[in-house]
């Protein structure tokens, strides 16, 4: 080491004494500049950059929405505007024209209900059970639940054809049976909020505490775990509803009438009504997800 030190002393003088970064302002100049400056250190952009980017992005994303609104108010090609298309939706005289759409919407709502039940009665208990009793399976469960994202829906759709020809023989070909297939599509979205919620709890500790106080497993589930998981469960249910209402591929492949397939059909005959319903669905989905987001934000702040 002493050789090293010698070496440093021999070669060091020129390089170590230069510190080009040293910069010292003259006091008078400093007095004028100093107090107004904000040192900007960090990844965040300046307010101006941020605003410009967000406004441009906002325009790109809002113009098509605005175009939908504008389109839904058009009176044919006359160039004037009217509320007649909105009125038509509510007009009982024209009900037959929108029969398919109403039927599709009802079907989608039924599918929503069943899919939510699948999430609550099949997925949720499994996740809690794995967390409590089989933590070694946690990674496997996650893999299975994420899997539907990596398999294109069209591929599963092809496979559903033979499966549903059997199901049709067993329970008929009503649209509600689509819920089993859509439940799979929903898995990744429904899994995540509950998983995040579970991660934040020490489920084993909670249930041991409750059990040591004399609670049975049923009580542990209903009185301890579910209340602690309600944010995750609620978010899962909302997201499930949004996914089901937006689902198109499976319904098309299995030629069942749902909200989305009905929209595509009616678009050929009455594009105005199609656009009105599409708008409503987008807004509905947005509100659902906004509620989920605010739930999460409140939790983060707490």
């Amino acid at each position: 080491m002493s050789a090293g030190v010698e070496d440093v002393r021999a070669s060091g003088t020129s390089e170590e004494s230069t510190t080009p970064l040293r910069a010292v302002g003259r006091p008078e100049a400093v007095a004028r500049r100093a107090l107004g400056r904000t040192p900007r250190v960090g990844a965040a952009p300046s307010r101006a950059t941020s605003t410009i980017v967000l406004v441009l992005a906002g325009v790109f994303f809002l113009v098509p929405i605005a175009a939908m609104v504008e389109f839904s108010l058009r009176q044919g090609r006359t160039g004037s505007y009217t509320l007649q298309h909105y009125a038509a939706v509510l007009d009982p005289a024209q009900e037959y024209a929108y029969d398919g759409l109403f039927q599709g919407t009802l079907n989608s709502l039924a599918i929503c209900a069943i899919t939510v039940l699948i999430v609550l009665l099949v997925l949720l208990p499994t996740m809690i059970l794995v967390e409590l009793r089989y933590p070694a399976l946690r990674r496997a469960l996650e893999f299975v639940c994420i899997l539907p994202i990596t398999i294109p829906t069209v591929v599963i759709g092809v496979g559903f054809l033979p499966v549903y020809s059997v199901i049709a023989r067993l329970v008929g070909s009503d649209a509600w049976s689509l819920a089993f297939a859509i439940g799979i599509i929903v898995l990744p979205y429904a899994y995540r909020p509950i998983a995040v919620n579970l991660q934040g709890l020490d489920v084993a500790m909670l249930s041991e505490a409750a059990r040591s106080l004399g609670a049975g497993w049923g009580t542990v589930m209903v009185r301890v775990l579910v209340p602690n998981l309600r944010r995750g469960i609620l978010a899962s249910c909302f997201i499930t509803i949004a996914v089901v209402l937006g689902e198109f591929t499976i319904a098309t492949f299995l030629s069942r009438t749902t909200f989305q397939t009905a929209l595509v059909l009616i678009q050929h005959t009455d594009p105005y009504v199609a656009v009105i319903f599409a708008l409503l669905a987008l807004v509905f989905g947005f509100v659902l997800l906004l509620v989920i987001g605010r739930l999460g934000a409140v939790r983060r702040r707490a």
């Binding site: 098509p64 594009p271 989905g285």
Partner: peptide
């Protein structure tokens, strides 16, 4: 979230209208 995951058909309508 709405646009990325649930919009499919409705996004197509939006662009037809645009």
């Amino acid at each position: 979230s709405v646009l990325a995951q649930f919009g499919g058909v409705m996004l197509a309508f939006a662009w037809i209208a645009t």
